[in-house]
Amino acid sequence: MEDKTLRKEKNPLKNIIILVIVAFFASLTLWGNAYFINLLTLLFLYLSLAQMWNLLAGYSGLVSLGQQIFVGLGGYCLAIMTEKYHQGLALSLVVAVAVCVAFAFVISFPIFKMRGVYFTIGTWIVAEALMIFFANWSFANYNIGYNIRMGYTFSPNIIYLMAYIIGIGSVALVFFLLRTKTGLALMSMRDNESAAEVRGVKLYGTKLRIFLLTAGYTGLTGAVLYLNMVYLTPDSAFTINWTVSMVFMVIIGGMGTIEGGIIGAVVYVIIQQYLYNFPGISMIILGAAAIAIILFLPKGIMGTLHSRYGWELFSVRRGLQNKGASVTSLKDILMK
């Protein structure tokens, strides 16, 4: 059904643009220089983090400040599987995803009892607790952390391709997910929680699925991030800074839009690189920029472009917004 929706897109030009962009970045492995490849590796991985946080906070209303839980767990799984058990990359990544999903499932019981800001802070406390736990856990090598030597065995191009697949994959995942029934449920839930409940949207199940999905995907992204960084400690793995970057990317780009996450990731990575020599200042600028955006462009760059010029690349919103009111037309949108 999703394929049909895509093929019947009114504007074929958009699909061609998207295809060209996708192909262009894939071809970079053949001719791009090392610095550029490295930059784009970061870009795609951060893009994935942004998309996942956006799916969670922007589309599902689950404003979590604890997504570093899964970045850290993903990294630790990779480190422990390769360093301690000498396993291959594929199995390590599978384990990383599985552990993240399982952990998310376990903490969902207490966490989902918390509402609004309590959820926000609750997730953060879990992350801080994990940081301390790992620092005291002999199995995870205490405070010393791990040198992930497997990282050196891959060429930058291979890691770039992984990041590329994860980044593009995250966009595709969110895009298609929003066009399914779950996506529609999310939209109506976000727009009006009580009304959605009346209409029989299963809030708990839907939110839980999204939470698990983003946990697994963030964990996968975290594992590849650490494969690229080759060194991790509890402090760096579970730092709030991961979520800081996610929040800034999404806020700057525009919450609740796919393009917002893309714009945000590009802006974020560029600012990070540009201010690389002034590490403190770059965070101050990011903080100030985020506040300025919230005050003056509350919908973010993308949201502002969209409401001012109707400009958008991934049209998941248009059909859905019209449908806020009735559920009988659910099928119509999907078949359109």
Partner: peptide, 25 residues
């Protein structure tokens, strides 16, 4: 005060930004 009437999230995120700025300064 400029965002306090627009729901809990924007204000929370503003203070999040302030937090980052204070720490880094």
């Amino acid at each position: 005060n400029r965002v306090i009437t627009k729901g809990a999230e924007p204000a929370l995120l503003v203070t999040f930004g302030i937090s980052i700025i204070i720490q880094n300064i």
